[in-house]
Amino acid sequence: MKERILTYAEAIREAQEQEMARDSSVFMFGMGVDDHIAMWGTTAGLQKRFGASRIFDTPLSEDAMTGVAIGAALAGLRPIHAHIRMDFLLLAMNQIVNIAAKARYMYGGSVNIPAVFRSVIGRSWGQGAQHSQALYSFFMHVPGLKVVIPSTPYDAKGTLIQSIRDNNPVVFIEHRMLHTMKGHVPAKPYTVPFGRARVLKQGSDVTIVGISYMVPESLRAAHLLEDAGIRVEVIDPVTLAPLDMDTILRSVKKTKHLLIADNAWPTCGAGAEIIARIVEYFQKEKLALPKLERLGFAATTCPPSRPLEDRFYPNPRTIAEAAHRLLHGRRPWTAKGEISKEIAEFRGPF
C-alpha cells in the first residue's frame, strides 16, 4: 500500500476537520485560530469550511475562555480550546484544575466535561523564558485529566480524534519542532487509544523513553550509539496520563538500563514519575534495581541567547552520551549531533 505522507501539523488539522464534519457538537476556538498563521497550519481553512460559529478567535482571556469551554461542555458540546503556547495555560489553571478535572467527580457523576485543551510547546529559536515551557507534569499530578503528547503524525491524528471523542478533559500537547515532521497518515478517521506506549526501536542494552520532541531526538541518539555498539530500545509513551508502565517495565527488565529524555525540567517531572514507579515495582518484586537516569531541560530559566539555549535543551549528543555513561560509567566517549536539522533550519520570527 502506498504511504500517504502528511506533516504532523497537517495531521492535526485533518483530525479536527474530520471530527467537525462528523459531529456538529465539535467546535473550536482560541487566540489566532482563524488568522493567516492558523496555528502553524493546524487550523488552516477550517473557518472557511465550517463558518465562524464553529471556529473562532477569542479575546485574550484564557481564564474565562477555559470556563466558556467547560460551560459549553456542560451543555453537551465538545469544545477544543487551542493555545499557541503552553505557557498561556497558566492563566487557565483554575478552570482546568478546579473545575474541568473535578466536575464529574464532585458533581457525583451527573456531568461530563468532554473538552480538549490543545497547547504548543517547544523551542524554535530564542523563545526565551515564557514561550518555551512544557508544563505537562502539572497536569499529570491532577486526577481527572488526561495528558496526551504524541510524537508522530500518525499518533497526532489518532490521539487527537480520540481526545475529541473522549468524555473527559484532555490536555493535548504538540511540540513546534514536530509540526513540520512527516509521516504516514491514513486518510480515513481513526483513533489511537490512550495508555499504550509505542516501542519505536527495539534494542537490548538500554531503554530510552523520549517525550514529545525528545522521541525523534532519542531515535537520533540511538543511531549515534550504534557506532559504539550499543543497541537502544526507544519508547514513546504517547500519553502521560494514563501512563503505560507495562511497556516501559517490560523493556527495562530486559535492558536493565533506563534513560528518560524528557522535554521539560526533570524535577517533579514525567521522568521522575516513571522512575519512581519503576523503583517501586522492582522493590516490590525483589528484583535488582536497574540503572536509571533522567535528562531534561537544564535546571534554570530558558534563555534566548543561542549558545545558552543550545545548552539548555537535551540533544542527540547529550542523550547518547548520557546513555553511554549509564552503561559504561566514565569511560570517555563523545558523539556528534548537537543541533538537529529542523532546529538548524528554523527561521522565526513567530
Binding site: A64, G67, A75, N94, Q95
Partner: peptide, 21 residues
Amino acid sequence: MGASAIVGTTIPQAVGFALAI
C-alpha cells in the same frame, strides 16, 4: 448546573452554557 468554592469560577461557565444555547 453546579457551584464552586473558588470565587468567580462559575461565571464563565454560565457564559459558555449561554454560548451553547
